[in-house]
Design a protein around this nucleic acid. Sequence first.
DNA 1: GTCGCACTAAACACCG
DNA 2: TCGGTGTTTAGTGCGA
Length: 398
Amino acid sequence: MSLRGWSANLPSSLSPPWNRNPPGLMGPVVGMSPDKKAGSPGSQGGACGAGTLPEAESASSPLATSLDRLGRAGTGGAGTEGETTEDEELTNLNWLHENLLQNFSLGGPEDIEGSPDEHPLSSSSSSSISSSLSGGQAAERDPLKSKPPFSFSLLIFMAIEQSPSKSLPVKDIYSWILQHFPYFSSAPTGWKNSVRHNLSLNKCFRKVERSLGKTNGKGSLWCVDPEFRPTLAQALRKQHFPNTHAFYTPPASPPSASSPPHHLLLMEQGSALRESDFDAATAMMLLKSASEQHSDPYDQEGPIDLSRRGEVVLVSRDPQQDHNYSSSPPPPLSRDVPSARRAQAPGPVGGKRVRLRHADLDEELKEAAGSLLHLAGVRPSLQVPKQRGRKSRKISRK
DNA sequence: GTCGCACTAAACACCG
DNA sequence: TCGGTGTTTAGTGCGA
């Protein structure tokens, strides 16, 4: 069954956005004139961080934990694009599973058991990446090349956060996106413009002067404003797992029981390529965000003891932030926060964080666990985040 | 119907 | 001069 096949079996509301979206999704991308610089994306991919960004390559982040390894392998990080093999991803996913699922004992192990030996992860996720891509069924690949269910801001966020130095030049951001979302490789360069647009306008991102000879001109480094890192992480989670609880909540019958849900079928069919990719990134971000709150040098709140479920500094759960991770009181929340961001004093600013109550923390942890379950293939009937992406754009606007 | 947000496109300026 | 980068503005579509 093809991806289209299974998606066709689902209600439209459960269908992943990239399938739910008609060809009009990113219509301009598909229908627009081919990228004049079509070669650039591919050619840039190999240069991700290597050579062009020594600081990113060599920088050993204080946060360089296993999570970072995960991130690096997932991104190709300091390596080249081609070096990121499925095995690496699988290894990392295994690590994720082995370490984190076991460390996260929030809802009880029954939530994450799902018979590890028969874990869908072992038979799907990473292997599906190559198999799906190497398959000759272009028609089935198309959906996989649909626009990822992440906003550009989140893509940038993931790219930056997965870099060892937590900062990337735009070029490497391009590369990361291209590497993880091949959709963009066939998209016109307009998306690059959007990336830059986001970098400039989204106050979540800050430009860092490059110290290595390069001054301000080309190739500034971009990093995530530490103040917004948790917010972005949460936005990522929210965007990807809006209804995590739906599957986090232990089902009446285990997912792997006699009546496997759609998602398991799909995983078995190796059709979850893109999603698995997303999952890896998302789960990593979730976990990283959790760990980085623990070690974020910018975090003035000090280390977080997950075992101490009293107060944890997390972002506000203001529904508004579900869609606007850049939201914060001082600057306007409107889409374009141009000079507001720059006018804003860099560095941590108090008052943006709220302390989550115990219940909220539980919810966070549950969501994290849900993400891991999702990563492991236990997914909520393809509960894909509410796709904010446009479904269709008129090809001819002007 | 309105509003906010994400996205796209374009133009322009700056820098190497 | 050219290409990459960064900024800004305008317009569009979608979901809440």
